[in-house]
Nucleic acid binder design. Structure first.
Lengths: 221, 221
DNA sequence: GAAATAATCAAGTATTCTATTGACTAGTCA
DNA sequence: TGACTAGTCAATAGAATACTTGATTATTTC
């Protein structure tokens, strides 16, 4: 009857790769763009050795690839489909796990989040320059890819950037995606300083998944 | 900075659920329709207790649900999206793991497999009755859902059914999907008996995933 | 009520996975 | 050359998993 057992064993390799919270976080970070081991470790709060080993597991499942240049090894997703897969997993979690839904609700309920309804209209206004779109992720991730017309404004440097912003112009801030706190923080800060600011829930991966274009490199500054 | 760590922990529940070959096989079977523990155990070649425990893990990840009626507990996918997720995982495997691709090639290369190009035309002819569409899975799965116009012809009973078939009419056989051997066997048998038969790679889940309608219940016999 | 059956539970062992530690390799820069 | 750095490797202890076996819980049937 020649069973297809070996197939399930292979697919389980992928399952095992995404069976650890630490690896999921690393994958999520890599969805934002390539990064060095050290940078990943720091962002995820893991030791270097531990991070290296998790990356090695992900590599064993062919989900990421690393390339050494100089002292650093830069890891990146082996394929854009890996990012889609992560998003599918996340969507399944949202749908099936009440716990995920509860965590997400904390984000969505926040009053500063943009309603999907308003999204289209606002993005149109961004294009016309009537609204400012801020990318509040670290500059590294902005460089890897960002939304069209977005200005890089890392949360850390936001305070010093405020001086250059016109106080009347409405601001839309985004970060890594629906699970990320950076944009929430940014909106809080901006509002405290008297700006009109809202949060865009989408990050670059979500934007890309909708088939919309992203900009790679320095872009507008 | 209120990290989103708990989120990754939750998503890892899903990852762990699909980190075992046995559980993947059970999921795959459940994509064909609801089944009892005993029936799943037998099909997957696992002990009853082991199967029960794996199902319990899947239930813990909210991927399946069990319902007791009489002596039997019938398990089913908790949601159709679980089946889509399994297919996404499988697609990622096909794309990223050379080993999966190698296994699949054995199926696709088989000369009796229908080319995707011919598929549309042939299905049109099935609808017109010019071609016979055979569902060679166990009757239980046919009952759970089958393709329109398909006739139930479990591989085990195929031999006795041949008498009722007209030898000139071309036959298309399908089973659980691209990984399943049933239709391959059926085509081999049919050809040995002098019939013109080809294999349709799609199963009910693939058909459904393409947004096409399926028939639930007895259907044509 | 007693026997039979489907499934689950509980316990035990072998295996695998995780995170840490310290050693090691390779590349850089003075 | 020698000091320094990023990352990997190797070994380890502890935690989690897998599968088996035998007992237990419901439910049906006689």
């Amino acid at each position: 009857m020649s069973t297809a057992k070996p197939l399930y064993e292979q697919l389980a390799r992928l399952g095992k790769a995404v069976a650890s919270p630490a690896r999921l976080e690393l994958l999520d970070l890599l969805c934002q763009g390539p990064r060095t081991v050290e940078s990943l470790a720091q962002e995820a709060g893991l030791s270097i050795a531990n991070t290296s080993q998790h990356l090695r597991v992900l590599h064993g499942a062919r989900l990421v690839e690393g390339e050494k240049s100089g002292l650093f090894v830069t890891y990146r997703l082996a394929d854009p489909s890996v990012c889609s897969f992560f998003q599918t997993l996340r969507a399944l979690g949202e749908q099936r796990l009440a716990e995920v839904d509860a965590i997400l609700r904390q984000f969505r309920e926040a009053p500063e989040t943009l309603e999907p309804v308003e999204k289209d209209a606002l993005l149109d206004r961004i294009q016309k320059g009537e609204v400012i779109l801020l990318d509040v992720r670290p500059a590294e991730e902005y460089r890897a890819a960002h939304l069209p017309f977005a200005v890089s404004a890392p949360l850390k440097d936001l305070d010093s950037l405020l001086a250059t912003l016109r106080r009347r112009k409405p601001i839309v801030a985004y970060c890594r995606g629906p699970y990320c706190v950076l944009a929430k923080e940014a909106v809080r800060l901006l509002r405290a300083r008297g700006f009109r600011a809202v949060r865009l829930e989408d990050g670059v991966p979500e934007w890309r998944a909708q088939g919309l274009p992203v900009v790679v490199g320095e872009g507008s500054k």
